[in-house]
Write a protein that binds this DNA or RNA. Structure first.
Lengths: 194, 194, 194, 194
DNA sequence: CATGAATGAGAGTTCATTCAT
DNA sequence: GATGAATGAACTCTCATTCAT
């Protein structure tokens, strides 16, 4: 595949991303993507066979790009508590945003294409987030910022809370205050005074 | 609508439930339900206009029936901790079951039919679950079984963890051990020794 | 068929008339009539087999009742010109009314169920109208009110003009003034000063 | 849309025309046209959205083509009376033809899609026909061929008679002699000896 | 590579008509 | 007679997918 094709493929993925953000996964048809990209019907099939394939590649692109964002923050000079708060604030923003998010599409996709599979991007993201939080807590404990019995379990628990908030944000609705309360709860359990 | 029609309507809802369990919400067509019920194409339209309507009625039936299950347990003679553990075990079973569950369909439905609306059944269930847990914790604190600063917040936090576990069970997968760890974490935070 | 059945049949026809007035002929379904009559689906079939049959009976009822109206006017004491003008005014009103008229339904019906047939109610009405106008003109000529070479032909011509106005009223639209002009034209040709 | 598409669109319109001629407007389904054209179900939707759209385009094509026929005749060298007679004969032929005519479909269409609207093709045709006849009469009067008080009104009256004959031809039936009688009547009123 | 016309399967929906009660 | 549930045919419309150019 030539350079030009690579460009086009990327263009399709970026455009398709917007479509998935807007309509979720199951509601998106090949036609939707064709129209959003303003390419020919047959043209799309030169690059992708179906929406699932496109979606997976969108996710891959997504994770490649967002990994960078994470590391940006972590290399900054700050206490563990600062970074954790920063991280939680970021999560809050994302889950309250609701628009411009692939969340619903991701869930829909993984409902249909059940786990166990090796290439479960979502699982990797979850696990690596747990790792990061865990590390952060460990550092915090060492610095005397946090109090924590079992850093791994606490990190995992935080992630489940965040996941719970996220799914609720997309189904029953979640207020900004509700998220704040959970963040405070998390910090309190780590022995941080508000 | 006569007695017979009521029976048939219920039969359709029960059959449709199975279809939703199996295929989620968005993937289910009127035709799927027609075929599952082994009725005629036009016959279904005598009772329902579209899958969303059917789904909502399935949910209503569901919640009517599950309400009973809850109260059964609570009227038993047991300590607060016992009941809480029972509740959490039940949740565990349900979220590990993954089959025979409307969870995915419910999520899909509420992705498309966003919150804010008054008739958000899911929200009602969430809120009432929070209430129940809160009450339980309060009783437990009075009995000296639990230690807890803010019962309401803790109850809410528990529900978010459970929601997090549930969505993860349906996307990235969750092991029985992982659920147990979270249950233990919850109990530990309430000051209960394992 | 008992007295009760006769009543019901008449009720159905009167109700169906309203439906045909509102929706024309081809757009009316058995279901429409069932719903308008608020009777059972099967019930309608006890009396009629299809919409065409109902429509024909509606027309028959119609013509029986309107015959009376005609004779009412004619028995009044008035000059031929007076009666003719009266007749033309009546026609004007009807064709401008456009609502509450079976006209479109009638046309639609006869498009589908082409002429030649003996029971062409429309033809009978046309012919009898020609007869009446002819008679009127003859009387008028005898009285010296009208001048006319060929009464039969003139009567026919008047009817064609009226038919032309009617169909135009239902397709391209016709103003009150346009109708007046035609009426004046007719009268002028009969030698009547405006 | 390429040249080929233009050809196909025209082919569809020509084929659809036959269907409308045969079945009127309301009775024609997209399926009918699909089958007549021997194209695929979806194929038709590439070009048209519904039967009303197709019908309007059929009418447009029709009027474009028939305009030419008119002018052909008028450019010939002949007296006004000759041309008028020619015109009336043409009308006679058309209205007696009954087959191969869009008349019924046109009426049905305009029953449903009532006037007032600017794009009422039928009205344009009517008005332009009135203009032509009017002009013809004026010329005839100047030449001493015709006698006429009010050319505009007479032209309009002629058109209403023709419309009346046309609708009668499609409902109660009209004989060739009947049409001849009306033509003679028209000419006589213009002072032309048969 | 790219296009977009074409196909045909399949979902939604509406009704005429029947029939057990 | 009367009801209305049930059936199945018929239509509309949308897309995934192919293929000649």
């Amino acid at each position: 595949m030539g350079e030009k094709s690579v460009q086009k493929k990327k263009f399709i993925l970026e455009t398709a991303r917007k479509v998935f953000v807007e309509k979720g996964f199951k509601n998106v048809t090949m036609k939707d993507i064709v129209e959003a990209c303003e390419i020919s019907r047959g043209g799309l099939y030169l690059y992708f066979d179906n929406t699932a394939q496109i979606f997976l590649e969108v996710l891959k692109l997504e994770s490649e790009e967002t990994d960078d964002v994470f590391s940006d923050k972590i290399t900054e000079d700050a206490t563990a508590a600062d970074i954790l708060v920063l991280f939680l604030q970021e999560q809050k923003e994302e889950l309250l945003r609701r628009q411009n998010t692939l969340t619903e599409a991701v869930y829909e996709y993984y409902f249909e294409n059940h786990p166990t599979k090796k290439d479960n991007v979502l699982k990797k993201q979850f696990d690596s987030a747990v790792k990061i939080i865990e590390k952060l807590i460990e550092v915090g404990v060492e610095n005397g910022e946090f109090y924590c019995d079992d850093c791994t379990e606490t990190a995992r628990n935080i992630m489940f809370v965040l996941e719970g908030l996220k799914i609720c944000a997309h189904t029953i609705g979640v207020t900004s205050e509700a998220v704040d309360r959970e963040i405070l709860h998390i910090l309190k359990n780590l022995g941080v005074e508000a």
